[in-house]
Design a binder for these strands. Sequence first.
DNA 1: GCCGTTTTCGGCCCGACTGTTTTCAGTCG
Length: 587
Amino acid sequence: MPIRNAECAAVFAEIADMLEIQGANPFRVRAYRNAARTIADYGRDIPAMVANGDDLGKIPSIGPDLASKLREIAATGTCELQQTLRHALPGAIVELLEVPGLGAKRVKALHDALHVDSLEQLRTEAKNGHVRELPGFGARTEAHLLDAIDERLRDPQRFLLPDAAHALMPLLERLRAVAGVGKAVPAGSFRRRRETVGDLDILVTSRDPVAVADAFVGYGDVARVLAHGKTRSSVVLVNGLQVDLRVVDADAFGAALVYFTGSKAHNITLRRIAQAGGLKINEYGVFRGDERIAGATEASVYEAIGLHEVPPELREDRGEIDASRAGTLPVLVERKHVRGDLHAHTDASAGRDSLRAMADAARARGLAYLAITDRTPHAGGGRNAFEWLARQLDEIDRVNASFDDFVLLKGVEAGIREDGSLDVPDAMLGRLDLVVGAVRDGFDLSRDAQTERMLRAMDQPHFTILAHPTGRVLGERDACELDLPRVIAQAAARGCFVELDAQPRRLDLPDIWCREAAKAGVPVAIGSDACSADELDNLAYGVDQARRGWLTRRDVLNTRTLAQLRPLLARTMGAGGASKRSRSKGA
DNA sequence: GCCGTTTTCGGCCCGACTGTTTTCAGTCG
């Protein structure tokens, strides 16, 4: 399989782990970690840049040495350093670092003294009581490690946002009920609205921190207490979700919220800026010497170091700090800007509710339009295969006649065949307002074949929106191999759109590609992909992801009024797509 | 190993909690 950014990043991450275990210079280790993260998030294909002879040194955190290693990895899939380190540290030793409580020093100690180089070996040695005899270890540490290994082997899972929220809300309520508590708010990746969270972070202000911590570790759903201090505690809930609590004074709330929201990389950059200006940032405030100059609000913290407040969704150290300093942060799209929904199902296909019920629910949510995009059946064909769709179009006319402030748009979710053709006849497509094209099988095609398939589909005269472009289902199916920059370029040339499917288990387009679409001038269509009236609320998750992708109101297609939207849809539905394609080929 | 309106060399974020220590190393967020 050809090497991609993710594989390059994985090589650097493994090198960082192995160097750390060997006791290498910690700053050298950090350099590999930073590079791995940058590459994994990078919006351009690095192997392609290598092939082009582009200057990799322009990529942040990549210097001459790592640039040369990237060229080596792009060509061979590995590099000499990785092979040397693997030879020195055999087995699955790096997986030991993922056990909570085990860092590089202890892994090295286990390896040197007991020749442990896998989770299984560690479990055996711990069960036999050998671990507790090592210097720096003890009986308690050994017991914790056994617990942690079992937990890790059982389910090393991440949680979808709605599942995390389901666990979070009752816990927040309990904490808010504790005497002396002011605010109790979620922070961490949940607040940044990452598509999945590995743990939950809660920040509380209180004049009685001990009472808060006691209520926290005594919560009924707590399975295990990892730490129980005055200002910080950690637990694992019965569903396996780790929750970290931090309690501070009200006047430190802003600084603590910045600190606890992260990301870690964002915070490190903030602190470096503070340091360069003779200041210090910690979770209690911004300090000049002993004098505290900010900290009650997040805005005050940013302002103290010459920055504008950065929306939580952007705090990933992906350029937001430079933008903040320059005053060029995007004004992000909000849920209230979204005027309609461009992807929904009824009981005619995958949905559970009727056309009428979906219309009423959309209208009740303040939407001005809803596209009905039922799914074509996989099998079948024949002369009357699309009779249901014809009937639905008539029904849409009847329902629309009953509204004067709301419109159902006529659409379909057409399957994209492996040859790039759509599984709905042109004559039928021509009667619609929009056509949402979706890959629903053949996710394992080669990168070239998958990309060609989508480009050909987008070239169809009636094609409007490419649904859930990568096909990922979080925790179940990886994104398919796809040259997204080419797909986005094609959408720009063709005047069609890419979707951000707002189902919390999809959130597809991923954030970094939302941003690339916006850079290319391709509006992103946020679609709830609702299979019931309730699921129209998915739009909020889509907006969260859009914000993480730096999208403004203008970058999102369905912030348009219906009057603004219609001509954009009509342009994709008209004839002439093929000639536009031939124009784009020369570009 | 990267990086630079203090630097091309000498820096590299900061504090809490645990367990094993007897003043602190290791880990974590």
